[in-house]
């Protein structure tokens, strides 16, 4: 499987933010999207997820077969928001996402253990700290299988230990043949990851 973008350009509010961005990610590879604020990292990820239309260019997921015809259905998108309901408990949130997203992989308790939240699964999501909320959102990546992970500032709010644990999870995903496209300012601990610098060729 191969995720390829050709001469992609994105716009927000009628203004072109980036243009002519091309890259390719194969199975087991990661791509770090870096660049200053406003360079269009989030816009790029949202275009990849199918939430925004590209202003120009082409985007394709080759070799996904019938199961993964397009990037959208084949991806986990971890955006700025955690997509969890504050009134429900951590466990209820994750059980819902597992049943809704399908393709179950880990059980909810396994996933919570993997992110170190096994003791607080019964708490309402609203009671959690910022870092704990982020870890619960990361657990969503684990409970159902998607070959492509689109991560937008995934480690925002995480402490050092959780960052390390998340690095392991990402490496595990790559070993299994997954792909990761991550927008970040911080090193994620992924050796050999490609880097896409945004916001430089535009100036």
């Amino acid at each position: 499987m191969r995720l390829a973008a050709e001469a992609l350009s994105g716009e927000r509010g009628g203004e072109v933010i980036f243009s002519g961005t091309s890259f390719a990610v194969a199975c087991g590879e990661a791509l770090l999207v870096t660049g200053p604020n406003g360079a269009g990292k989030t816009t790029l990820l949202r275009i990849l997820a199918g939430l925004l239309r590209p202003a120009a260019g082409r985007l394709a997921l080759d070799g996904g077969g019938e199961e993964w015809p397009d990037v959208g259905p084949a991806c986990h998108y971890l955006g700025h928001f955690n997509a969890m309901k504050t009134a429900l408990t951590v466990e209820e949130n994750l059980v819902f996402w597992q049943r809704f997203l399908g393709q179950a992989r880990m059980t909810v308790s396994e996933a919570l253990e993997a992110v170190g939240l096994e003791d607080i699964e019964h708490l309402p999501f609203g009671y959690l700290s910022t870092g704990q909320r982020r870890r619960a959102a990361i657990a969503r990546l684990l409970i159902s299988y998607r070959p492509v992970w689109l991560l937008d500032e995934p480690t925002a709010g995480l402490d050092r230990a959780s960052e390390g644990r998340f690095g392991q999870l990402m490496r595990g995903h790559l070993r299994e043949g997954g792909m990761i496209v991550a927008a970040t300012h911080l090193p994620l601990g992924l050796e050999g990851a490609g880097e896409l610098r945004m916001g430089e060729e535009a100036t």
């Binding site: 199918g50 997509a83 309901k85 809704f100 997203l101």
Partner: peptide, 16 residues
């Protein structure tokens, strides 16, 4: 929309 769930529903369009 505020908590990001709407993005998930939109992305899951192919499945649901």
């Amino acid at each position: 929309r505020e908590d990001g769930s709407l993005d998930m529903l939109l992305i899951a369009d192919g499945r649901h």
